[in-house]
Write a protein that binds this DNA or RNA. Sequence first.
DNA 1: GCGACAG
DNA 2: ATCTTGTCGC
Length: 217
Amino acid sequence: MQPWPGTEEEALAVQDSLRSRVVHSAGPEAPTTVAGLDVAYAEGDDRLAAAVVVLRVADLTVVDTAVVRGRPAFPYVPGLFAFREVPALLEALGRLTVPPEVLICDGHGLAHPRRFGLAAHLGVLTDLPAFGVGKTRLVGHWDPVGEQRGARSPLVDAGETVGAVLRTQAGVKPVFVSVGHRIGLDRACALTLALAPRFRLPETTRAADRACRDLLR
DNA sequence: GCGACAG
DNA sequence: ATCTTGTCGC
């Protein structure tokens, strides 16, 4: 990942080029391990910490953790967010001992202006099944989501379904699930629910968030 | 011209 | 992302 875009124009070109490599498929039937990825930023300076935490799906226990320090590789620009965190996340992924079967990212996959958000980007670069679970929307519209856990509504942008707005807990704001690479929306939603038995966000995201926050201090 | 805009 | 007070609930 040496040739990194230095301008928005270059970043857009990279997205256009990599987008064609996205693979649409159902994905692993019953993955044994899944990884949560997240990045935390320091307050004063521009340091960041990127974490990847591998969980065993069966009991949601942590089986591996990798955290690295770094700097943002690109300014924050909605739609080009991946260029900011991908280098640090790839470095952390490379330090894992237990290989994850699915990557779960903090952000979106196809629910992106050009259908190539962070989850799709990481999925293509690693060629691992990957999807995103975002806390807020980037693109798309949806009808009201049922109140009970598991209820979902299609996230639609420009006439196409780009994800799902999924209620992981009754009485809690839903999350935005979107496919990235080599996995289908139904399986991504099912996995998200299985990983969020008690809180709004999946345990993968919570564990990764904790891990990078700890390193920052 | 005025909003919207992952983290 | 991070800042930021109180508040409700277990």
